[in-house]
Design a protein around this nucleic acid. Sequence first.
RNA 1: UCCGAAAUAGCUCAGCGGUAGAGCGGGUGGCUGUUAACCACUAGGUCGGGGGUUCGAAUCCCUCUUUCGGAGCCA
Length: 431
Amino acid sequence: MEQVLIKDIAQYVDKEVCLKGWVRNIRHSGKLVFIILRDGSSEIQAIAFKPELDEEVFERAKRLTMESSVIITGTPKQHPKYEGVYELAVTGVEVNQLSEEYPIGKKEHGPDFLLSNRHLWIRSSKQWAILRIRHTVYFAICEYLNNNDFFRFDSPILTPNACEGTTTLFELDYFDEGKAYLSQSGQLYLETGIMSLGRVYDFGPVFRAERSKTRKHLTEFWMMDAEAAWVEHAENMQIQEELIRFVIRTVLAKCDKELDILERDKAALAAADAQFKRMTHYEAIEYLRSKGSEITHGSDLGAQDEALLTEGSPVPIFIEKWPKEIKAFYMKRDPENDNLVLGDDLIAPEGFGEIIGGSQREDDYNVLLGRMEAEKMPIEDYQWFLDLRKYGSVPHSGFGIGLERLVTWMSGIHHIRETIPFPRMIYRIYP
RNA sequence: UCCGAAAUAGCUCAGCGGUAGAGCGGGUGGCUGUUAACCACUAGGUCGGGGGUUCGAAUCCCUCUUUCGGAGCCA
């Protein structure tokens, strides 16, 4: 008998098949047992009817518990009430392992309990949907980049120095070489790659020892950094926009069922696939002040400001040309205004906040050295980075996307902690 | 780190000075169409730890611990 996945069940109507999976829920009604079986690919209701089964098989079905692993044989049928829904008329039940009392019940649970049981929580349908969207977003990003001449260029996770300041690094002992740090961004290494491959990206975990406690922060998260030679500020934003719009389209096309499970507003997501707005930092501050914000020129945007800015906008908004004081040392000066840098942040609509930070990079040796000295950075540690401006420097730009932030937005969920299998937060490292 | 909230059955919570409660989950039984199924019965608690007030504390006060929400920083 053929073993099949539940997602393919429609192709096997009236043919006896074998399904291997777990019991999501079970209900009895006298001579009937209803088993919700899930197998990773999807779920189906299996029905054991006493008069049609051996006493022993029916008893086994009746004794199943939530999350037991089972091998069920049966015949797929069209559901008597719902068109396009299939159920399985059970012919055989083999218990692989009978689950003990399962901790996660059918009623609501608190976040502390669920996070402590994250290893089991991921089986729940919403978590299943989010993890599948994460998978889709991850590969959509790679697909777009691969199709646009970017090459995968993996940055190291163990690094001898900081990318942007030194207050938020996880520190560890590295043999006799002194301290090493967990990477908080692969960007500086990525800049070396463009001189070999032209356009490159990395995608992996990065670490920030910030004592942040919000629904948008993790201490370990996955970031995609992209970097391209000969690309300047305007084109950099164009690439970001095309990439994000490609991700939106891919998620809408491939994750319809997942979005339904999460009750995501798909129309809002589809509406974001249109020309993104662009605002300078100065314009953004003016706009926010006109809306009643107390924010001043020269300040960074707070969470409330980001929400206020995107309120009523169906599309993401680029904030570009930032005051140099509040942005990183490696960003290139705006040729039109020496006080500004050619950086851009992309703010997602619907209050999901910043999902991309990017910039054109400073490519002049002396200007860059000046910035680094002004910030009292240890120049000797960054000699390799400065070398890039000595040997065939080119205008170049890049950006970083926080995978979990993007998945939070796509999924329309409240908290970033559900977008990664095992979230790492300031007060949580188990399981 | 700062501000706020919470901790009672395995889970979600009610009880807020006078005998420890419900729903879900567990167990036993019933039901031929259930879909967070339903119905009956049943087991299950050092009320986060410590100290205090009181004739009497889950309840009031102090303290510690843990967690949650928010801020700052950022993706």
